[in-house]
């Protein structure tokens, strides 16, 4: 539940839920999750159940905590000094912040794709094989199979199958981003986290990534942060609207965009904010 925020006009609001449930229920559950950067609280009592195998979009104005929330899910925020958290994030019922959790193992279960494509300065093949090599896989056949499968799933195989040994930095921006998605799914994670994966791409490359997200749906639990509300509307099953570090409304994407329950959500998605 969103906690009271004196003076911000949010005192009366509690998170409104009308979530579309996936066939397999939720595999990622956040409960009263709060996060502070030093003394500044960035997330306030976030409670959400992310449904397995479907796409959840996080939307909200800049600085509302979308990326912070996304980065909390694979504990990328751990590297920030003075960071503290309260509440829990559970993956398949296990608290990811519990003492003794192996963060590397945790991150292996979560692929992440960032705003700007960030392929490693090595060949296309090595980019995709990297997570498997880190895992200790040495068998060339196994690496080649995994590479073809991941590139195929990322809808890139046909375009790069003859260029596997070329430097990945020579690919176009859209191809580089799909390569990053291939790398993220090569080790077969449970969850795919995407932080504005299309914001650096042109409309055609964006459409390809969106098509790819639709294809990956069902295989991975996907959480996508996006500033582009039409994109959230196009690709996601559930949408979570955040504002000032609070989860305001979390529900089926159709309903959020056609008939949102809260005036604040409606104001944001129709462009009447502030």
């Amino acid at each position: 539940m969103a906690a009271a925020a004196p003076g911000l006009g949010l005192e009366m609001e509690e998170t409104v839920y009308h979530v579309k449930e996936g066939a397999e229920g939720a595999n990622l559950e956040l409960e009263n999750f709060c996060l502070w950067y030093g003394k500044a609280q960035a997330l306030h009592g976030i409670g959400m159940k992310v449904q397995k195998g479907i796409v959840t979009a996080l939307i909200g104005p800049s600085g509302c905590g979308k990326s912070t929330l996304l980065r909390s899910i694979n504990r990328m925020n751990d590297l920030i000094d003075g960071l503290s958290v309260r509440g829990s994030i559970r993956l398949d019922g296990k608290d990811i912040n519990a003492p003794g959790v192996d963060v590397i193992k945790l991150r292996k279960r979560m692929g992440m794709v960032f705003q700007k494509p960030n392929p490693f300065p090595m060949s296309v093949f090595e980019n995709v094989a990297y997570p498997l090599r880190v895992d200790g896989v040495r068998d060339r056949r196994m690496l080649a199979d995994a590479c073809e499968r991941a590139l195929g799933e990322a809808a890139l195989w046909e375009e790069v199958k003859d260029r596997l040994q070329e430097n990945a930095l020579g690919l176009s921006g859209g191809q580089q981003q799909r390569l990053c998605i291939a790398r993220a799914i090569a080790s077969d994670p449970d969850v795919l986290l995407m932080d504005e994966p299309c914001s650096a791409l042109d409309p055609i490359a964006t459409a390809r990534i969106e098509e790819l997200i639709a294809r990956l749906r069902g295989h991975f639990t996907i959480v996508i942060v996006t500033h582009n509300m039409q994109q959230a509307a196009r690709v996601s099953d559930n949408t979570a609207f955040m504002y000032l570090g609070r989860l305001i409304e979390y529900g089926g994407t159709n309903e959020i965009f056609v008939n949102p329950r809260l005036p604040r959500t409606s104001d944001y998605i129709t462009g009447r904010f502030g």
């Binding site: 509300m229 039409q230 509307a233 965009f257 056609v258 008939n259 949102p260 959500t265 409606s266 998605i269 129709t270």
Partner: peptide, 9 residues
Amino acid sequence: RQPTAGDLR
């Protein structure tokens, strides 16, 4: 304009 919510309705 890609209208949403009340505008779309």
